[in-house]
Design a protein around this nucleic acid. Sequence first.
DNA 1: ATTAATTTATTGATCGACCAATAAAGTTGT
DNA 2: ACAACTTTATTGGTCGATCAATAAATTAAT
Lengths: 232, 232
Amino acid sequence: MATVATRRRTNKARRGESQEKILDAAEALLATHGFNGVSIKDIATAAEVDASLLHYYFATKAGLHAAVIARRADEVNASRLASMQRYAETAAGHFTVEGVLRAYLEPTFAFVRTPDAGRLSYLTLIAQLNSTPTGVIPGAEVTPFDPVIQVFIKLLREASPASSDEDLYWFYHMLSGAISVSWARTGRIDRLSGGLCRSDDFESIARHMIALFAEGLTRDRAGGGVPSADRR
Amino acid sequence: MATVATRRRTNKARRGESQEKILDAAEALLATHGFNGVSIKDIATAAEVDASLLHYYFATKAGLHAAVIARRADEVNASRLASMQRYAETAAGHFTVEGVLRAYLEPTFAFVRTPDAGRLSYLTLIAQLNSTPTGVIPGAEVTPFDPVIQVFIKLLREASPASSDEDLYWFYHMLSGAISVSWARTGRIDRLSGGLCRSDDFESIARHMIALFAEGLTRDRAGGGVPSADRR
DNA sequence: ATTAATTTATTGATCGACCAATAAAGTTGT
DNA sequence: ACAACTTTATTGGTCGATCAATAAATTAAT
């Protein structure tokens, strides 16, 4: 019953701005409180529309969540892909880990370097999604970013030919963790550092993230030592 | 009113095992579904007790959450501290980033190298907490791990004297992200790597995490210079 | 040592509030 | 008139929490 998805067949619908208002409000609230921490009514109130309207456009709460994710996915993927293609042409044959890393990360940080506050919420939402077990959040089964991430890893492979595929994937695993906690803006590092670092200082975050992980993969082969052995 | 906290003045209270059963069930369910994804009734059902009993012992849902966190905090802190103290004595004056990193991380990985499945849930819960904005999860305002983390950073400072405090705190920020996503066991890297990596392969995770971050901080100054000489 | 008093543990019933979702009626623009 | 949009009204269900009543164990009094 009800296969509603995006509706709006004719773009004549001037009043369709309600849909955007709903998506904006949902984006902000879902990013902050998570799927189960927000009600349809909360979102409707923030969007200044009636709660039933959310069901009219998105059928279910999970459908709304999926629509929020889908809205900006293409833009993010396209900018990442374009940046990496640009780098691949520029540095053809002379890839460095730092260069590839920067090419992948830069568009994302540029994405929030705008007045559009919704974009920041969006990345927070995606990050929150990436650190949640699959299946516990309804409407989040799709993974629209994976193909582009595979391209990123392919470039990394060329930049660091000595790294095994396992190394590369674990590298991305650690990187995705650092990215997630960064977009989450928990305020934790602020308190821990006594105000020396600020969770919303994305320029510093980008700088340290690139430097740290570039060196990490360049030098790390993870095979050498670490035979665990020492228990207690 | 009930100012219930731990009760049990005389340890005679044989029936106190209900409390443990509740904490065990809450630990597992909260780790998987998050605070707002689980109901009091869910936990009571899993613990095979009446829902009212949760209120009797912990007053509120937030109180139960706080109790779950508090239960194992001392053990985690003590093992981390002991490991770092042991390292400080052994390697006195010759700290390395890898050594300090290993001393801090190893007890946590050892913590789940036991038949007690609850410990794994516990770390998942803590990790989930660390990547959630402060204030959105009731009963999670306390931060029982920060003091020991400060000790970790103090040792790092000695191991990498060329790093600024800002570098060190951002380093911990990135590390905490990698740790969080690891304990979250999202299954994401499994799918991305086509089964090459497994989210629950903590031995591989520990190996790559230590190697990656050890090299990252050793070489990274985030500014550009690379004055260090210290390697293992 | 038995009983009475008190504390601790557990249950069941119930509250009002809120939840997501549905159906139907109304409104608007074309 | 028609179709997209929006509101009103209402559904059945679940939420966290409270309370009175009871059961069991512990302590105190005799």
